[in-house]
Design a protein around this nucleic acid. Structure first.
Lengths: 198, 198
DNA sequence: AAATGATGACTGACCGGTCGGTCAAAGATA
DNA sequence: TATCTTTGACCGACCGGTCAGTCATCATTT
């Protein structure tokens, strides 16, 4: 292949990249990062190992790309269109989206949790540009809970985030243990927290 | 060294084993399992790599030993002295012990979470003898919540476990974000669930 | 007490194998 | 021909694990 047109070329390259990323994600989620070799990724993508290095500088770059993409997808759910404030309806929407995401992309979430928990990863994220976004969102989130409850904002927020994270953990890692009824129950419980004024 | 006495010898061997385990745990928690080599573990324990293999069959055995030990420590907190029933006071004690453990052995908990989340690990645990114990305890726990609340036992339990796991995650991985006030608040909240009859 | 033997802890060089990453050459397209 | 894609052989590094052999210590013999 060669310059058909610059745009077309770029698009083909982009497709190949996606091909590699998709193959890598599948294996990472299945076997973990360290247990997955570039050989396997390439084979799963239907190309040679050498070619993978034409599209990504390193195995690590593949991981980072996937991880950042996921993080941004989650962050955008809460993003509030940059109005520097999180409203009640926005949080409700976030809950809906998040639960849907958890359901539809369970493997992706599993992968994400595995990576996040790895030593050094969290520190690396928080010092990067993504860390800025996370901290900003966190700040808005705190303000939101302060509006909701003057004297116990931090506690309300801790309960909310704990419920969300703990539920996610169990949902992703203990399949079949959580019924649809419980899923809806948890959603309602989270929603209910948003209504508890003062 | 040679047969001073069989007991003494055994004790020395035991000490060496502990030395290796302790060195390994420190590195596993710091850098992760895969990123830690036997060379490093041995060096950290102040012995040669070869000697490590005199005490453990493989790197994996070191990991398993640490992991099982931790699991059993947690399980014993809920163990109820084998009376096949979990009482209210037992759960209260469990909460106390668990929170103390989380505080005192934060690194250990971090390590445990990292391992648990790894692909294949959970399946391996649940099919082993530890899995039996976990499932038994789970069963007793369900019964406990059924006594507590007839019509929403599963939901109460989901909330309880989600709060506990989500809180643990944040406490262990986001140091400094959780104040003592919040810690006590969370404890009280968990305790409160136990009081909500029907 | 001195010499010898026996035991098991301990070392470090070594091995097979794998992995991330490179590169020269071939293929494909204009 | 010129240019980009693609391949797969190849490299050096490292890792988990092994093993022949050393050494300190005690028991036994002289």
């Amino acid at each position: 292949m060669c310059p058909k047109s610059i745009d077309q070329l770029q698009e083909i390259r982009e497709q190949r990249k996606e091909q590699i990323l998709s193959a890598a994600l599948e294996l990472f989620a299945q076997q973990g990062y360290h247990a997955t070799s570039m050989q396997q990724i390439s084979k799963n993508a239907g190309i040679s190992k050498g070619l993978s290095y034409n599209y990504f500088e390193s195995k690590d770059e593949i991981l980072s790309t996937l991880f950042l993409r996921f993080s941004k997808e989650i962050m955008e759910m809460l993003d509030t269109n940059q109005d520097r404030e999180i409203t009640n309806t926005e949080v409700r929407q976030f809950i809906d989206n998040y639960f849907k995401y958890l359901e539809e992309k369970k493997e992706y979430c599993k992968f994400f949790m595995q990576i996040t928990v790895q030593p050094g990863v969290l520190e690396m994220i928080m010092t990067g540009s993504l860390g800025q976004i996370i901290m900003k969102n966190n700040e808005y989130f705190i303000k939101f809970f302060q509006k909701l409850s003057k004297d116990s904002a931090e506690m309300e927020m801790l309960v909310f985030t704990s419920l969300l994270k703990g539920y996610s953990l169990q949902y992703v890692f203990a399949p079949g243990m959580i019924t649809d009824v419980q899923k809806e129950g948890m959603k309602n419980m989270l929603m209910a927290i948003l209504n508890r004024n003062n």
